[in-house]
Amino acid sequence: MSDAHRIERSACEWVVRYPLTPAEEAERNAWVAADERHAGALLRAEAAWHLLGDAAPELSAEPTADAAPPRSRSRRWWLALPAAAAAVALALIAPWQEGGDRMATQAGEIRRVPLADGSVTLIDGGSELVVDLRPRERHVTLVRGEAWFDVQRDEQRPFVLDAGRAQVQVLGTEFAVERMGGSVRVSVTEGTVSAWSTATPGVRQVLHVGQSALFPASGEAPTIITEPDAVERRLAWRQGTIALSGETLYEAALRFNRYNRQQLVIEGAALRRQQLVGLFRIGDPQGFARDAATLLDARVEVDGDTIRLREKDLPNP
C-alpha cells in the first residue's frame, strides 16, 4: 500500500470513530499536525461519510429496549455496514490507485465515460486507455486507438496524456488523440493544448482550435495543420460515420477495422496508397469496399470475416 493510500485509510478510520473522547480528540489532532496531507485527507473522509450518512440508518437495525448508548450503537452501526465502509475507502482511494483504471472498447463499440474529475471521454472502437487521477496530476495513457476528451478545467491539476510517441498537456479544453500505425495525431476542437514529441520533450507545440499535429512513426518533428473542417471530418466517428478527405485506402481500412467483425485487407502496394474522399457508414465495410473498388478499379473478395480489396491485375496468392 502506498503512503497516500495509508493516509486516506487512516482518515477514514478517524471519521468512523466519532464522537471522540477528549483523549481521542487530542490523538487525532496530533495525527493531523504530523503531516500537512493529513488535514485534507480528513476533510475528504468527512465529506464522503456525510454522503453516506443519509442512507446508512435505513440499513441499520431498529433500536431495542436494551440498546447500547449512542456511542456504542454508532460503532456497531459502522461494523454492521461493511459495504458502506468499503464505499468510503473506495470513493477516496480509487481515483489515485497506482496503475489507474483501464478502459477498452471492442470493435464497433463507441463508449462515453464520465471521469471522476468532471471530465468526459468518448472512446473510439478498438481502443484502450488507462486513467489515473492523481492528487496533483490527471494522467491518461492512450494504449491504442483513439479517444476524444472534454477536460474539466483545473489549474492545480494539469491533465497529461501519454500516447507513446507524443505527449499532451492541458488545463481544461477539448481535444482528440489517435494512435495509428506507429504515428500519433493530436487534434483540438476547443481551446488550446501543449503537445510535444517524447524524443524532444523540450520542444513544445501550442495547438489551437481547428489545428492538428501529426507525429510520424519515424520520430521526425510533427507536422502542424490548420484545417478546422479536416479536424471535424476526422472525428466523424462520434456520429457513426467515417469521413475521408485524401486519406489512403490503407488508412481507411485501419479505421473501418476498429468497428467491424469483418476486417478489410488491402492487397497491393499501389492500391494501399490510393487516396479517397467521401462519407461512409461505420458499420458497412462491404459497402465501403464496393464503392472503393469502383472508384479505384479494384476487385472485392469476401471470405467469411475477411474482405479483400485487390488490384485487378494482381494474381491470386
Rank of each mutant, 00 (worst) to 15 (best):
V120Y: 13
T121N: 13
L122V: 15
L122W: 13
L122M: 14
L122E: 14
L122A: 13
I123V: 15
I123F: 12
D124W: 10
D124G: 14
G125N: 08
G126W: 11
G126I: 09
G126Y: 10
S127V: 09
S127L: 13
S127T: 10
E128Y: 11
E128I: 11
L129A: 09
L129M: 15
L129N: 08
V130N: 12
V130W: 11
V130E: 12
D132M: 13
D132N: 15
L133F: 05
L133N: 09
L133K: 07
R134P: 06
R134W: 10
R134Q: 15
R134H: 13
R134K: 15
P135G: 09
R136M: 13
R136D: 13
R136N: 10
E137P: 06
E137R: 11
E137N: 08
E137Q: 14
R138T: 11
R138H: 01
R138M: 03
R138E: 07
H139E: 04
H139A: 14
H139F: 15
V140A: 00
T141R: 00
L142T: 06
L142E: 11
V143M: 12
V143Q: 08
V143K: 11
R144Q: 15
R144V: 10
G145I: 02
G145V: 03
E146C: 14
E146D: 07
E146M: 12
A147F: 08
A147T: 08
A147H: 00
A147I: 05
W148P: 08
W148M: 12
W148I: 07
W148S: 12
D150S: 13
D150F: 11
D150L: 14
V151A: 03
Q152V: 04
Q152Y: 02
R153G: 10
R153T: 14
D154G: 08
E155A: 11
E155I: 10
Q156N: 05
Q156E: 04
Q156Y: 08
Q156H: 09
R157K: 06
R157L: 01
R157M: 04
P158R: 02
F159W: 06
F159I: 09
V160A: 10
V160P: 04
V160S: 01
V160D: 05
L161Y: 00
L161N: 03
L161D: 01
D162P: 04
A163L: 00
A163N: 03
A163H: 01
A163D: 02
A163I: 02
G164S: 09
A166L: 01
Q167I: 01
Q167G: 03
Q167S: 02
V168F: 09
V168R: 03
Q169F: 00
Q169S: 09
V170E: 02
V170N: 00
V170I: 07
L171A: 05
L171P: 06
L171V: 08
G172T: 02
G172W: 06
T173N: 07
E174M: 03
E174S: 10
E174W: 04
F175Y: 03
F175M: 02
F175E: 00
F175S: 00
F175P: 05
A176R: 04
A176L: 08
A176I: 06
A176D: 03
V177H: 05
V177T: 09
V177E: 05
V177N: 02
E178H: 12
E178A: 10
E178P: 05
E178Q: 13
E178Y: 13
R179I: 06
R179P: 09
R179C: 07
M180F: 13
